[in-house]
Design a protein around this nucleic acid. Structure first.
Lengths: 200, 200
DNA sequence: ACTTATAGATGATGATTGTAATCTTAAAAT
DNA sequence: ATTTTAAGATTACAATCATCATCTATAAGT
């Protein structure tokens, strides 16, 4: 059958990355084999090394694609209103039941941060870069700490919620996360002007 | 050489569990093989199944031991003052540089929650049980939500911090987590009586 | 004292893995 | 038109894994 045209190779490359981004988020970076990913992309494992230097290379590239994907809406927003709306939507979607049991399209940090931090230096660096990108979008005019704390709370909430089996329990965890997120967003020292004014 | 006495078997069992609890937290539950764990315990792989039904059984048991271990101080506290002190110490130790680069003795949820949630039903259940235990100790008289949100924030903070290589960056993440934790602890609706009183 | 049960060592098994070599064929380059 | 290049398929390989079978020698039960 081979060989395919240049354009078809690019399509294959994209398909491999997309399927990998989904499979890794669903089952972790160890469980899906190179063969699994290639099969999901409609190929056999033989051609893999025409596209990626190693499995670790695929992991890093697929993770980056996943981050691009989940940040697309926030990065497309241009006006301050649009960005505020996209931010609010991101947080609500993040702390939702749908996100909890839809790992394959969810936050790549919630799915893989733990594994990346034990992975290659490249993987760790890509993970840290994702933290910077996401938290930068999340902060609301104050120092970077707010974005990081908010991301940490949200990531932790979803991680804990995914341990629960009963839907009721999942919702309890999500509600706690939501309350915590509101606290961080409204009461962050440098933001909450009213609170500061009162306490002076 | 074999066979060992009953007392020695119990010692072996304990040693296997302790080493497993450390290795799994350090490198995840997949990376260390049964043979690795047994070697760390000073044994060969052959005797493993005299102690555990399967590797998954070991994972679940070792995780539970790790939770027992990190909660020991808080569970030993009897008076309310002791419990408050143990709680404060737990939070400070949790959000410390030492915890970030000492996975093997750190919070088993921060190390393994992501993997457990993709694991066997038994593993998930054990993970959820740990969430209940830890968050119960963390809450300060209010509803369970505070404990869960606080745990989520702390777990998320350490998870993100472990992606960073530079010590300075780690500290930035930890500082953000600390500020967020103070917010959740002091401003949780049902706790902050003064705030409630003011707003009525 | 004698038998039995068993902790741990040794070695095997079958499956899976990441990676590499080789082959086929059609797309690029000349 | 001819040559060269390379995408993807097939097959191979060396390593690793969880689990099991077997062996040993000693502790526990009688």
């Amino acid at each position: 059958m081979p060989r395919m045209s240049e354009a078809e190779k690019r399509k294959s490359h994209k398909r491999i990355l997309e399927k990998a981004a989904q499979l890794f988020r669903e089952r972790g970076v160890e469980a899906p084999s190179v063969s699994d990913v290639m099969q999901a992309a409609g190929l056999t494992h033989g051609g893999f090394y025409r596209h990626f230097k190693s499995k670790d290379d695929l992991v890093v590239s697929a993770f980056r694609l996943a981050v691009d994907d989940v940040l697309a809406d926030m990065e497309a927003a241009v006006t301050e209103e649009e960005r505020a709306a996209a931010r609010a939507d991101y947080i609500d979607t993040y702390l939702s039941m749908c996100h909890v049991d839809n790992r394959g399209n969810g936050c790549p940090l919630a799915a893989l941060a733990g594994e990346l931090s034990r992975g290659s230096p490249d993987a760790k660096a890509e993970g840290l870069h994702a933290v910077e990108r996401v938290s930068e979008h999340l902060r609301e005019g104050t120092d970077a700490g707010q974005g990081i704390a908010l991301l940490a709370l949200m990531l932790g909430t979803v991680t804990l919620a995914r341990l629960a089996e009963r839907e009721e329990t999942v919702q309890t965890v999500l509600d706690a996360g939501h309350t915590g997120a509101d606290l961080i967003r409204s009461a962050w020292p440098e933001t909450a002007k009213e609170v500061d004014a009162k306490s002076v």
